[in-house]
Amino acid sequence: MESILSVKNLQVVFSGFKALKGVDLEVGDREIVTIIGPNGAGKSTLLDAIVSKSPVAAGNVYFQGKDITNKNPYDIARMGIGRKFQNPNVYNELTVFENILLALKGTHGILNSITAKLTKTKKDKIIDVLDRIGLLGDAGTIVSSLSHGQKQWVEIGMVIAQDPSVVLLDEPTAGMTPEETHATGEIIKTLARDHTVVAIEHDMEFVKQIAERIIVLHQGAKLAEGSVEEIQSNPKVVEVYLGREKIDDAA
């Protein structure tokens, strides 16, 4: 399969500490890849390095064959990589509608933003996104008054509105109830029909629900890679999740 996102020998160093020690990652078009690993394994750092949130010390990131290593975050976003952060990173002072409107795919220039009108097409698109994340009734609500789980959805909605080729999700279900987690899994599955998804997750039920391929990171390096069954029976992986019978309890 042709890779849409390709990470080669990626290294990230934080004041002497090697957070990533040369990670390789190939993601195929419209694939769902899940990254798991204990705390401090470098999962978030890997996503941060892809979108230039953390500087890459060595190695390269390729997107659709183009080298995007250490490019401007907004250029990477415009090329088609969307990111959802670990803690919901949404605009608390704005309404749900405005959050989605900001994220909406399109030109992001100054003059365009001054003259742009809220067209029917845009409105319909936003309504569609709000419907998908189940917040249609809360379009006019200021985000700060939403629950934690709803904020997570708002940010997932922002990524959907952005309509990137590759979606990077950092713990999309953190702080959610089992029902909410399941609902999120369904959103992500529909998202994966026309997007490539790379998600960090702790919840193994959730991983089983969505994952096609799992990558296990440990201490800044790739430990294992494979299907859910392969990972669960991999002795090295079980070893890492110390003293635990199964990695089901890894969270």
Partner: peptide, 21 residues
């Protein structure tokens, strides 16, 4: 306008909005 919305987003969290392009 949308421009005003972007200004207020910059005020609240300028990093986030750069990841939106």
């Amino acid at each position: 306008s949308n421009f005003g919305l972007i200004l207020r987003s910059i005020k609240e969290n300028e990093k986030r909005i750069s990841y939106l392009g």
